[in-house]
Design a protein around this nucleic acid. Structure first.
Length: 638
RNA sequence: GCCCUUGUAGCUCAGCUGGUAGAGCAAUUGAUUUGUAAUCAAUAGGUCCGCGGUUCGAAUCCGUGCGGGGGCACCA
């Protein structure tokens, strides 16, 4: 007698051992039809797995995350199967599921082309139609290794060698084709359906290590209904429409060019946005007790040697040799310069915490393949600050930084923030007991903030552990922005001291923090988050005044003048185009407010407001408009 | 940096298997004076990313360099 407990607490009894399929059938016909895999005492199993003792069972369908994941995993297998049928001699490696889909890495001489993807998709459909039964076998480890070697699957035999001793080596068959796999899988190839699509080919290193050979990765997506697939493809399309590189061009904000890859040429409007963010930030930092400073962009090599950058960060640094053959580095970080400012004059414990902010432009030589619009550049402006404090002050200062960051993100429309904590990397400066202290202090601050956090082992900066602030945008994508680092190393290396209560010289702790991280990146994120439709107060061009015909040019000019007087950025469009044309043009360039002026407006000293993306027109007294909208600007940049 | 892919007018793109380039929009000029997402017409506009090669002849084929895109690796 077997007792199976279902998720709702109901119990089923069976005479002898029983498979998941049988259990599902006993629950309901429709469930048996939809069943994909099952959870036995919380562990995922094939439906064909035969249960031999009392346990709890949950039958999973495509509505469960693990159910859909299994569909994707099966699709990855079928992809590999199709590839090997079409291109004999191709070796398979790994094929996991990822968010929204899956990939499979292959080793093959000739590259896969876009056209090959179509062929492969067709072959995959065929395999689904063949509805080949799937079953699992457990093999002896040595047998498995020699088998895969014999059939030329060297990567697979490598993988088997690395499976921990205690684990079973399971082989899944789909008809005759088979693959080493942990499972679970659906009962046959027909079960996955045809709601998949191969999306792209890409290179990927074997085992993710750039010292290894490069494999060919095929990405795909897979769903349980046609609608889900269509919705997903549509989401991708929508995300592409928000691409800041495309919008940046359309909105005339910035451009890139060959002469300086990864460096931004800001146009008038983009620079205006940039400056608006800075003045907003200045106001916030001023309120929070920061003192703004500025330090040189080019500094002698000796300073970078002292700080440790020359050795630990040298691969990312631009250097410059002057005619007198001195070597300088273009700063990749602001910290050493800031410490030099701290070092001027004697500092007392009464000066701490001392918070110095700097909008510092830094240059980092990033690998060419890493560059990506504004989101990954070689020259960027950090909204940086360094807080010099005592060890006792670390937690409190970290907390106040965290609060400031959250407040600022909120003002700009991001409420969803998570933290990533990174501890000591392999490449680092300083003693381990110093690291112990720094890590402990930072972790304490995170805990005190009560925010959700994840831990990234070994990913801290070379001088100290860090927190990264990751925000989630309007369409669910995560972006790494702000950062907070505890540093017990650099101040000592660069000779920073303060006089403590007892009259002795002590080395201060330095906290590095950036709020947006990089102004450039943050602007890219803002554009994508708002799909270019920035909030009024940071819009670089806030209003365009449009006369209905040239008869009203002078009134329109007058309105424009009044608006500009109130600190609202505005232009008047007197071009020889009709109203429709102008509305279309300025709407496409994402101007938040268009002000239409015709006979009616002139007669009543009003403007008609047309807001971006709204057909609702609003006629308003000009003075009231000026009052309301200049207040909107002031509210955020005091 | 590595793999794949790509580079034609200010922008978006045509240009098949080699015969020195085209469209729409934008620009300029003229007409039109417009009430909520493209008024009409004319004109002008290009070392086809750079360099080298194959060829009688290269935007097109080959090599190479530099950019862009998608990934990997690296990262704010």
């Amino acid at each position: 007698m077997l007792n199976i407990t279902l998720p709702d607490g109901k119990k089923l009894t069976f005479e002898k051992k029983v498979s998941g399929i049988k259990i599902a059938e006993k629950i309901s016909k429709s469930l048996a039809k939809d069943a994909l895999v099952m959870e036995v005492d919380g562990i995922l199993k094939d439906l064909s797995f035969e249960i031999n003792n009392d346990c709890s069972v949950k039958i999973l369908t495509s509505k469960d995350k693990d159910g859909l994941d299994t569909i994707r995993h099966d699709t990855a297998h079928i992809l590999a199967m199709a590839v090997q049928e079409l291109f004999p001699g191709t070796q398979v490696t790994i094929g996991p599921t990822i968010e929204n889909g899956f990939y499979y890495d292959f080793s093959r001489k000739d590259p896969f082309t876009e056209n090959d993807l179509n062929k492969i998709e067709k072959k995959m459909s065929e395999i689904v139609d063949r509805d080949e039964p799937t079953y699992r076998e457990v093999w002896d480890r040595d047998k498995a290794i020699s088998h895969f070697k014999k059939i030329g699957e060297n990567y697979k035999s490598e993988i088997i060698k690395d499976i921990p001793k205690g684990e079973e080596v399971s082989i899944y068959f789909h008809g005759k084709w088979h693959d080493l796999c942990r499972g679970p899988h659906l009962t046959s190839t027909g079960k996955i359906g045809k709601y998949f699509k191969l999306t792209k080919v890409a290179g990927a290193y074997w085992r993710g290590d750039s010292n290894n050979e490069m494999l060919q990765r095929i990405y795909g997506t897979s769903w349980s209904t046609q609608k889900q697939l269509d919705d997903y493809l549509k989401r991708i399309e929508e995300a592409e429409k928000r691409d800041h590189r495309k919008l940046g061009k359309e909105m005339d904000l910035f451009h890139f060019r060959e002469e300086s890859p990864g460096a931004v040429f800001w146009h008038e409007k983009g620079w205006n946005l940039f400056q608006k963010l800075i003045s907003y930030m200045r106001a916030k930092q001023d309120e929070a007790g920061y003192k703004e400073i500025n330090t040189p962009e080019v500094l002698d090599r000796s300073l970078w040697e002292k700080s440790g950058h020359w050795e630990k960060f040298g691969a990312n640094m631009y250097t410059s040799t002057t005619p007198d053959e001195k070597i300088f580095a273009i700063k990749p970080m602001n910290c050493p310069g800031c410490v030099q400012v701290f070092n001027q004059g004697l500092k007392s414990y009464r000066d701490l915490p001392l918070k110095m902010s700097e909008f510092g432009k830094v240059h980092r030589y990033e690998p060419s393949g890493a560059l990506h619009g504004l989101l990954r550049v070689r020259a960027f402006t950090q909204d940086d600050a360094h807080i010099f404090c005592t060890e006792e002050q670390i937690t409190e200062e970290c907390l106040s930084v965290t609060n400031l960051i959250l407040e600022i993100y909120k003002d700009l429309g991001f409420e969803n923030v998570i933290l990533k904590y990174s501890d000591r990397p392999d490449l680092r400066v300083g003693d381990d007991n110093v690291w112990d202290k720094s890590e402990k202090a930072l972790l304490e601050a995170i805990k005190a903030s009560k925010l959700e956090y994840t831990i990234n082992k070994g990913e801290g900066a070379f001088y100290g552990p860090k927190i990264e602030f990751v925000l989630r945008d309007a369409i669910g994508r995560d972006w790494q922005c702000g950062t907070l680092q505890v540093d017990l190393n650099l101040p000592g290396r660069l000779g920073a001291t303060f006089i403590d209560k007892d009259g002795s010289k002590k080395i201060p702790v330095m906290l590095h923090r950036a709020l947006f991280g990089s102004l450039e990146r943050f602007i890219g994120i803002l554009i994508e988050n708002y799909a270019g439709k920035l909030p009024f107060w940071i819009s670089p061009l806030q209003t365009v005044v449009i006369p209905v015909s040239s008869d009203f040019d002078s009134y329109a000019k007058e309105v424009n003048k009044e608006i500009k007087k109130k600190g609202i950025s505005s232009i008047v469009d007197l071009k020889n185009h009709n109203l429709n044309y102008k509305i279309r043009e300025h709407s496409l360039s994402k101007i938040p407010i268009l002000l239409i002026c015709g006979k009616k407006e002139v007669d009543s000293n009003t403007v008609t407001i047309r807001r971006l993306d709204s057909n609702k027109l609003e006629n308003m007294d000009l003075n009231l408009f000026l009052k309301n909208h200049s207040a909107l600007n002031k509210a955020n940049s005091k």
